[in-house]
Design a protein around this nucleic acid. Sequence first.
DNA 1: TCACTCCTGTAACAAGGGTTACATAAATAC
DNA 2: GTATTTATGTAACCCTTGTTACAGGAGTGA
Lengths: 208, 208
Amino acid sequence: MIQELNKHYGSQFELALIEEINQVATFMEVDAGEDLIKPGQYIKSMPLLLDGSIKILRPDEEGDELLLYHLERGDTCAMTMTCCLGTTKSEIHAVTETSVKLLMIPVGKMEEWSRKYRTWRNFVMNSYHERLMEMLESIDNIAFNNMDERLENYLLDKVKILNSKHIHITHKEIAADLHTSRVVISRLLKKMENNSQIKLHRSFIEML
Amino acid sequence: MIQELNKHYGSQFELALIEEINQVATFMEVDAGEDLIKPGQYIKSMPLLLDGSIKILRPDEEGDELLLYHLERGDTCAMTMTCCLGTTKSEIHAVTETSVKLLMIPVGKMEEWSRKYRTWRNFVMNSYHERLMEMLESIDNIAFNNMDERLENYLLDKVKILNSKHIHITHKEIAADLHTSRVVISRLLKKMENNSQIKLHRSFIEML
DNA sequence: TCACTCCTGTAACAAGGGTTACATAAATAC
DNA sequence: GTATTTATGTAACCCTTGTTACAGGAGTGA
């Protein structure tokens, strides 16, 4: 675990902090497609993402959802941080997009490390900032783009996360993430195929 | 100034911090409708809002904007905080909604106070958390609500901020904040009037 | 093999919201 | 006063998106 820690955080955390993390953190490995945090759940520890990708979804009143952004290696969940501190319920839904490796930090350490380590304070601040920026991007996408542009961005994002031009996903799943209907997605994907941007197969999409 | 400080922050900041703020902060009073931060601008000091209301807007590529949320007394601008630290350009546009009183804190003090004062750390964390929550609310509104609901929420928000049922605003200004067209707003407002929710006048709206 | 479920394609239609155009009335400038 | 600008009301139209319905193909299980 200490190697993983050094690999992803060694450059930004001082040695003493790395050692403290190593002592108190719990290592976890989770398969793709698992729930990490459900909306309404109370949160008891804070995750540091070592490897893989997590998608953060916002539920509406009817139980449908909207994809907000992805967490990648080296990220942490800003929502979780204050939910931890304030013992409020989670406002979001976190699902593993790939298999992930993560460290769980006990809540109590957060304040202590904020006092002791400048690098930890910077890390927390940067995390908040990055999350705010991703929320802004998300708002841009929803408010300023049509569904065809949103779909295109979505697919490009998938390529980056999965590091492959073959995306194994159904139209229905895409529709759920973009908070629209399956028919709309099928229609737009067909248009992209006619436009030679992609090739459609059963349950997977090939980016060209 | 020290009275204002104590009034709004006395309960959450320790005395020594209040005194430090009093020593280094610059007091400012700004009229309604003024630009505080323009998109792309570099930010050199961090605002603490003592009184009044500030609206935070997100620009699109064409120069149109979308209202994200309001800052009220006791708030600070989370965007600004990290823009200060990271010396990045502002991603947002801040405009005074009413006349405001604010304190400008030199950037350099932020890190120092984060080290020294637990209450300051909590304040900064809470600010980030509140801003994330307001962004979420904003996303809910844009993604899950139709324009008529968004308009209704907008008007209710105005009532709260202005503390009056008489809203002095034109349809064009509302359209700009909601990133839609004047005709759409006029149409929906007329529907609300027929529905006895509001009464329309030239350049102002009466909530019933 | 047969039944069933899941995934995709497509048509037809409805609704929301954006656009253009024009008319009228109130405010302002001269 | 008149001319001009600004705010509003409204009609007609179109495009995007959402909805319903149905068909056929692919996979799965008995």
